[in-house]
Simulated scan of single mutants.
Amino acid sequence: MADPKTIKKAFDRNQKALEKRPSIGKRTALTKVRVRDGTTCEITASGKKMICDVGTEMGGNDAGPGPGIFERGALGSCLAIGYATWAAYTEIPVDDIEVEIESDYDARGQFNIGEEPPGFSEIRYKITIESSAPADQIKALIEKADSHSPVLDDFRRPIPIKREINIKSKENTS
């Protein structure tokens, strides 16, 4: 398990490397998703696999968490890791970190009913940190971590999205 000293050492090492050679921080990440059984998706990235699915009430197999759960989980885990990392880096003692993510949505948008957007209408997060440090230090830690959270930034900032379509038709074209 990564203890605060290990986290701080890794942070320092990465920070110094990026200051010396900024180009090493620029990469492209790839995640592949393949439908395996109706709605069950196998997600593969960096040699790791996850399963995503929707519940039977949506016609799925309920074989794993749905996309919205992964979305909230990505945000919550990125925030929690950020708090742990910045606490270690700044040597602020932390005993426990919990992040709750809540999202509001209206399913009508997903089913082409009315003018509702298909995604979330609001996301809220609640942070609980146990620490012997003064509250103002914890609040400053949270502000610092939030301002450097990649996934929180992805949610807050519009990101250009490009689409490419490849169709492998089995239709006889003769």
Rank of each mutant, 00 (worst) to 15 (best):
F11K: 13
K16A: 13
C78F: 14
A29K: 01
F111W: 12
I81Y: 02
E130P: 00
L18K: 10
K139P: 11
Q15H: 14
Y105H: 12
K126H: 13
I138V: 11
M50I: 07
S77Y: 05
T6F: 04
D95W: 03
S23W: 02
I51S: 09
A10R: 15
V33I: 15
D37I: 09
S121H: 08
T85K: 06
R21Q: 15
T6M: 11
A10P: 10
R34F: 09
R36T: 13
S77I: 13
K168G: 13
P4C: 12
I165S: 00
K144E: 08
G68Q: 12
A133P: 05
S46C: 05
K49N: 12
K139W: 03
S169K: 07
I165Q: 08
K168S: 15
R36Q: 14
K139M: 03
P22G: 05
S169T: 13
E71Y: 12
G60Y: 00
P118W: 04
A74K: 02
D153P: 01
V99C: 04
Y125K: 08
A45I: 04
I69D: 12
D37M: 04
G25S: 04
E130R: 06
P93V: 08
G25P: 06
G68A: 13
E122M: 12
D95G: 11
I101R: 03
T31H: 05
G119H: 13
P67T: 06
R27Q: 14
I161D: 07
C78H: 02
G60E: 00
A107P: 12
G64S: 11
G64K: 02
E98R: 07
D12Y: 01
A140T: 06
Q110H: 09
E91M: 06
C52I: 00
I81K: 00
G59W: 04
H148S: 09
D12T: 09
L18T: 05
K5I: 12
I92A: 10
G47L: 00
I138A: 03
E57K: 10
Q137S: 14
I127Q: 01
N14P: 08
G47P: 00
V151A: 10
K170P: 07
T28H: 08
K20M: 08
A63N: 07
N112I: 07
V54A: 09
K9M: 14
Q15T: 10
V151M: 02
K162E: 08
R27T: 13
R108P: 01
T56F: 03
C52E: 00
A74R: 01
I161G: 05
G109I: 00
A107E: 11
E91P: 02
D3K: 06
